[in-house]
């Protein structure tokens, strides 16, 4: 059913992405591709993988922005973006076939690839550009929040996190349950002022972003270095010391 679930379960799973610590290494995008090309959404097809005009399905794309104009106050912010598993996902309700759906129990937005007709309307309805067509299979694909990893009881419990979160070397990505006010993600959002992307569109994304910190020097001009003192005006003693030390 592409109508949104009327009864919601206990969990609302999503990510918190910390724009302060992300270093823009693209490990999340790479590990996402690695895991998902063989799981629930397999394969994440690449076309012309080793030649010009290569195209392919990626669930995670890392942008880099310059913020605060140019000059000393400007800063570089790396910005990973994938599906935000919205509370009001129009990508689900526009689907004519019932392939696109939002799970009641945990809020994850998924696609049933056996029902998808590849009309692309869901990708038109997503303001975040989170859905990509698999042109080889003719169906739409999207981030599953690694549904085949986070519930996989064959894995040790500490490994049951999305691939992008597990691989992040700077711990810029956090996975958790937003319905629980004491969960790691709820606390991070509360303490660091987590925010929604494009709140004006009303899609109410579950996943949140943490703003970069404005710490030392981030918004102030770099300190000027003092020039070396001029010895011409120094006394005899200091000039002698200078000569001795300069030998």
């Amino acid at each position: 059913m592409t109508s949104l679930p009327t009864v919601t379960g206990d969990k609302r799973l999503g990510l918190v992405i910390d724009l302060d610590t992300c270093v823009g290494c693209h490990a999340c995008a790479t590990n996402c591709k690695e895991w998902n090309t063989s799981g629930h959404s397999a394969p994440l097809t690449d076309v012309n993988a080793y030649q010009a005009e290569q195209r392919g399905v990626w669930f995670n794309r890392v942008f880099t922005y310059e913020v605060g104009g140019q000059g000393p106050a400007a800063r570089t912010v790396h910005f990973p973006k994938n599906c935000l598993h919205c509370e009001k996902p129009d990508c689900v309700t526009v689907c004519p076939t019932g392939a696109s759906y939002k799970r009641a129990e945990d809020g994850i937005v998924l696609i049933d690839h056996d029902k998808c007709i590849g009309c692309a309307l869901c990708s038109w309805a997503c303001p975040y550009g989170a859905r990509e067509m698999d042109e080889h299979q003719g169906v739409m694909k999207k981030c599953t929040l690694c549904i085949d990893k986070i519930y996989n009881t064959n894995l040790p419990e500490e490994d049951r996190t999305p691939a992008c979160v597990a691989t992040c070397p700077s711990k810029a990505r956090h996975f958790g349950d937003f319905a629980d006010p004491e969960s790691n993600v709820s606390q991070l959002v509360r303490e660091r002022g987590g925010f929604d992307l494009m709140p004006e569109t009303g899609y109410r994304p579950t996943s949140k972003y943490l703003p970069p910190r404005t710490g030392n020097g981030a918004a102030s001009a770099p300190r000027k270095l003092e020039p070396a003192p001029d010895l011409a005006n120094a006394g005899k003693f200091l000039r002698w010391v200078d000569r001795v030390l300069s030998r």
């Binding site: 942008f63 880099t64 922005y65 605060g68 104009g69 910005f79 992307l197 703003p211």
Partner: peptide, 17 residues
């Protein structure tokens, strides 16, 4: 508003993904 970074001033795309 798309990146939520507007509060820090003008936002400009530096690198494509």
């Amino acid at each position: 508003t798309a990146t939520g970074l507007g509060r820090f001033g003008e936002v400009r795309l530096l690198e494509m993904p």
